[in-house]
Design a protein around this nucleic acid. Structure first.
Lengths: 142, 142
DNA sequence: GCAATGTATCTCACCGCTAAGCTATTTAGG
DNA sequence: CCTAAATAGCTTAGCGGTGAGATACATTGC
């Protein structure tokens, strides 16, 4: 049972630490989440709000508002989908790509730092346990 | 690196699942957190807002508002501290104690269910990894 | 074809938290 | 003493999220 409590506390600590990195680049975790998801997608880094929503596990309303903010800052663009009249295509602007490319290395370094207490073996054991739990809960894409 | 992503997703899933249990008893996670912390404290289940704040890792403003809600529902009482004029003593009412006692078994069952995919050995490995990480991050009380 | 259902996105009211700042009280130092 | 700093709790503005619902378009089955 101590497992779930630790999981929660650790997740919170990780959020705080990674959030610091994002702030240093003028981003908040939610914005970085969207930008990084777009960046990870195949060039030309275009996704629909629905895809972003599934990736981020937030509601459609949250995605709309995140995109509003990012679009207002010129980091992403929204344009109507050619193939589906209900849909929208979200794309990283040059500025958005530059910002996420500048932030990502720092974020990776922060992540690495957070795990530095564990040996490679321990990390794998932890990752395996987490994956198994995620799979059992149908959390998708482990 | 997959570790941190899984950690976050799993933590979120756990929040959703445990939240369902709390809702079934007319509680939200934040309220249950306070009630359960009070219940865990030695009889007569009294703590100060500052103690609750440290236990829950939220800001003082959040505790004030949680207590406002709980007090309005008659689940806790607030009275001035006899020994420190700045301080307040929060205490479970009979009704609050009854509600948390009714909810706790369900919560434990839910928690157990969430971990049911793991063997005892796997749980211990996971717990050990999480504890080591928490310690390395100075998260306190592992 | 067309009605019924489903899907994609956005809108809006509400909610809980944070961060900053307030008041009141306690503690520490000159 | 008595001021200065620390601590306890509360207030409030603002933020990002949810959940319900609206709108528009797409798909399915008759």
């Amino acid at each position: 049972m101590a497992v779930l409590g630790r999981l929660k506390r650790l997740s919170r600590l990780v959020d705080v630490e990674t959030g610091r990195t994002f702030n240093a680049h003028g981003l908040d975790p939610a914005s970085f989440d969207v930008l990084a998801t777009l960046r990870r997608s195949a060039a030309p880094h275009r996704l629909t709000p629905a895809e972003l929503m599934r990736s981020s596990m937030v509601t459609s309303g949250a995605i709309t508002q995140r995109l509003d903010r990012l679009e207002a800052r010129g980091l992403v663009s929204r344009s109507p989908s050619a193939s589906d009249g209900r849909s929208v295509v979200v794309e990283l602007t040059d500025e958005g790509r530059a910002l996420v490319d500048e932030t990502l290395p720092d974020h990776l370094a922060t992540s690495e730092g957070l795990l530095s207490a564990l040996t490679e073996e321990e990390r794998e054991a932890l990752a395996a346990g987490l994956r198994k739990l995620l799979e059992s809960l149908g959390g998708g894409m482990s």
